[in-house]
């Protein structure tokens, strides 16, 4: 029997070569986030150099051509639309997950989950297009112009609903069956069992799901761009047109130059900061869940 000893030794060395190669790849993957941050900062640097950060919320208006950089109305629009969407999507998403776990017969639950998964896969531009052609005219009949904060909120709700539903679904699946048996043994009704035992037990999972949905809502561009009207203003009602931070970037990047372009990158930084804050919260809740 011939054993090629040399081969064995070199194979053993391939393991360490492989490890080094993989480390390089992993480093590259991890570096992307840092690159993104780096380039956002370096591209916004030209304007940050001579415009203090405070002016981005205290300037008279958003007119980059005249050196006015107030992003506060757009920040407000982003926060309002996201808040509205999260407020609507949370009860709907939780109800949908509860439906799958405790109300629907098995076959129906499977179909419902599939529906939700397919909804999650519809691209945002299609939601936006649907909102623009179907929903906006409906709302416009109620109160013109139709493209408005309300339309944006409704479309965003549709979009983040699957995120809430799927994460809450996973959180509910993690509730120990013993809790349920204990509650059932006490003769509780289904709703008091859910309200008293299931939801509290799954609360950190639910909270992190809501955070993730909020991240999606804040970062959403195309759908909101197509249905919210894109007027830079503080909305005076739900039917007013608004422009979000994301829509602003998408609309103006195509022709922005110099300081204007840099100001858009500042907008991007603000957006990223908000998202990271939320992700931090979500992480916090997740760790909380791990401790329970």
């Amino acid at each position: 029997m011939i054993w090629s000893w040399h081969n064995i030794l070199s194979l053993s060395r391939t393991d360490s070569i492989l490890a080094a190669l993989l480390r390089l790849c992993a480093l590259l993957s991890a570096a992307i986030v840092i690159l993104i941050l780096l380039f956002l900062i370096s591209e916004s640097w030209p304007v940050l150099q001579h415009v203090p950060l405070s002016r981005f919320i205290s300037d008279a208006s958003w007119h980059p051509a005249q050196g006015l950089y107030n992003i506060a109305p757009m920040l407000g629009a982003t926060l309002l639309s996201s808040l509205g969407a999260v407020l609507l999507a949370t009860p709907l998403g939780i109800a949908s997950a509860l439906f799958c776990h405790y109300y629907a017969p098995t076959a129906l639950a499977i179909w419902h989950r599939r529906t939700i998964a397919l909804l999650a896969g519809i691209p945002s531009v299609v939601y936006g297009f649907w909102g623009l052609t179907t929903l906006a005219p409906l709302i416009g009949r109620l109160h013109p112009p139709g493209v408005s904060l309300l339309t944006g909120i409704v479309v965003l709700t549709m979009m983040i609903l699957p995120t809430v539903a799927l994460t809450v679904d996973a959180a509910l699946a993690g509730v120990p069956a013993a809790y349920l048996r204990g509650a059932a043994a006490l003769g509780l009704t289904r709703w008091s069992m859910i309200n008293g035992v299931v939801l509290p037990a799954a609360r950190s999972g639910i909270a992190s799901g809501i955070m993730l949905a909020a991240v999606r809502a804040i970062g959403e561009t195309m759908a909101i761009l197509m249905v919210a009207g894109n007027v830079v203003q503080y909305p005076d009602s739900l039917f007013a047109s608004v422009r979000t931070l994301t829509a602003n970037i998408a609309l103006e990047m195509a022709y922005a130059m110099g300081d204007h372009r840099a100001a858009l990158f500042v907008t991007g930084l603000a957006l990223l900061a908000m998202v990271l804050l939320l992700v931090g919260f979500a992480e916090f809740f997740k760790q909380d869940a791990a401790h329970v």
Binding site: S29, A30, A31, I32, V33, I34, I36, F39, L40, E43, L212, V215, I218, G219, E220, T221, T246, I249, A250, M253, L264, F265, G268, L271, L272, V275, L276, L278, V279, E283
Partner: peptide, 15 residues
């Protein structure tokens, strides 16, 4: 860092 990357909005990727 991958968790963070997963939550970066697509418009930021565009920038």
């Amino acid at each position: 860092s991958l968790d963070v990357l997963a939550s970066v909005p697509s418009i930021i990727f565009g920038l």
